[in-house]
Nucleic acid binder design. Structure first.
Lengths: 190, 190, 190, 190
DNA sequence: TCCTAAGCGAGACGGTACGTCAAGTCTTCTG
DNA sequence: CAGAAGACTTGACGTACCGTCTCGCTTAGGA
């Protein structure tokens, strides 16, 4: 019988990736560095992952980075919920290791569109689900127009957040609130 | 009084960078490849640019990539103008070489935040200026609320577009129109 | 437990060095050229040798260049033996690849005195041993003065040969014989 | 009609070469370094010398390195004169800058036999002339055998000295004296 | 006196090689 | 047979000099 895959080695590599990205950025990550840091041979890495990007992908999913905002319970007040979501998300991004990971995700996406798109979809899914839920609920209580496109709104929210991460300039509360205001009421007069 | 900098060599390098990014992506670009392609010595490249990212930056600025949308004349109808802008911008991004350059810009930004932020600012400036202008005009003709934050709206537009480029999925007309609708009227009922 | 050093690669490099020196001279030898010629990567060369000079040194030692003269059997006639040694040595040096190697040794020595001195000592040792032996035997048979300094004589012989190699002008038989004559009888009258 | 060659620049280059060789050795000398050190443009160097070796050659000749031994006046005692010559020559070589220059000469010779041979001939000429003179005089006074080959002896002396310089181990007085003893009387018994 | 041809500094240019780094593959031995 | 250790080929990195080539500025003669 063959020797089974070493779970310990896998976790060490993923952890090493998270650490390496946090200090130095994705581009500076090296397979050799990862191997040394995780105390694993290069061959073991190559056996289990096809690319640096794939390791990052797995590391991100295991680490479920932007998951915390999801924990926010709905209050029944859509505007309040969205504001709270922005605050949680951008507080999360304010921590250096988290923004480094977010940027790494963006770098992978910009470089390897297919893998990147898959990763982004997985991450965005949570957010989109959460936001869509709130908007559906709000529609049922009449807070939102019947024809509002919940998914499009969720996409906008993700885009805004992603762009803020890219530039390393998380939204402050005032801007987040202004954004929620626009989303809900638009800018048209009257 | 030494021999003057060769303008031809510079342009050849920038052109080579644009070509290389267009087929292969930013990460695959190599200084050696650039040198060979531009028929220039490596030393000449290192003499004038501190990094691959800097070359891309200059190449982008000289190429004034997303400049075309700016040409759109204002019609006095804000919603129409914004819709037209989205169509133009996303038609631009639909061309493979343009989306490759846009993605390269994002990759640089994700990797070197400082340089990237500067480049993004330069690019966004045009868009922000154009959008802000329209919104100001619209405010004067009473189409827009007095307290609308033009710059924030412009940022959102840029973010949406950047995210679409990142994912390689330019907005189709229906989504663009829906987005303009939200911006103008929000999603709140009543 | 890792993969062991490739003996084949080593030998290929040393052989390439000998070939390269033979046609082009030591200064024209290039690590890159060696690597290409030996069909070995630069990295492998840098892994095992600290410098071009070290490679030459090892190549020389493995090739045991001026070894042939040593094969000469003693005949009991010191003058005859020395004459024979000179003829053998300078016949050896008359071959282009051998003089190229000898010159390379001199070039290294002139450039890196420490390494060069070590190499020279190794090479001279054989000659010195051989000459000293003959002189000792000759002393025992009364052919040589009791106070003759065998090592000094050997050094002179090496020096003469080295200088001839440097200038690329191996001694002809007449000069060699004249030199042996001086060594044995001096130039003083009576 | 045109501006004449700048004597100052020439001298500065030659002096820079001597200095550079003295600290760092011939191989470490670069044309660019020379130019900077001499405060002269590269072009000026290339205008007047075809190679690094040629500059060294001229620098050596102007500096007339091993000239001092020549100043020794003949005393009528051949053995004494030769001993004095060795002492002077090897005292000269004991100074670091002189041995560096001598080694540079050897390096050039080992590398570029034609130029090197010419330089060596020029240098050796003085020594050979001096030694030959003494031996001729000694022959006339009956100190030396009629058939002694003065030029061959002179060559041996040069070879010994050159080899000592190469190895960086100038002869001490005892060895020099032993060498003179061998030259004059040989090692044969009786 | 001023003209003009060369000398000169500065330094950009296309190259070649340097010595280093990491990528991804392979071989060997140990557990 | 998975895994560590690490040798191997490959190819790019950024640097140092090479020798050539403009530049614009002296700096003498000869007109």
């Amino acid at each position: 019988m063959p020797r089974p895959r070493s779970e310990k080695a896998q976790q060490a590599v993923l952890a090493a990736m998270r650490r390496a990205v946090a200090d130095g950025g994705y581009e500076a990550v090296t397979i050799e560095g990862l191997a040394a840091e995780a105390d694993v041979s290069k061959q073991t890495i190559y056996r289990w992952w096809p690319s640096k990007a794939a390791i990052l992908g797995e590391a991100l999913l295991e680490g479920e980075i932007p998951g915390e905002p999801l924990e926010l319970p709905p209050t029944g007040d859509l505007a309040g919920d969205l504001r709270a979501w922005f605050r949680a998300a951008h507080a999360h991004l304010a921590r250096p290791e988290n923004i480094a990971l977010a940027r790494a995700l963006i770098a992978v996406t910009a470089t390897d569109p297919d893998l990147g798109a898959a990763l982004n979809r997985r991450f965005a899914r949570q957010t989109v689900a959460w936001v869509s839920d709130r908007i559906e609920s709000a529609r049922e209580t009449g807070q939102v127009r019947a024809d509002a496109d919940a998914a499009a709104i969720a996409d906008q929210i993700v885009a805004i957040t992603s762009y803020a991460a890219l530039l390393g300039r998380p939204l402050d509360d005032a801007h987040a609130d202004a954004f929620v205001e626009v989303l809900l009421h638009g800018i048209a007069a009257g």
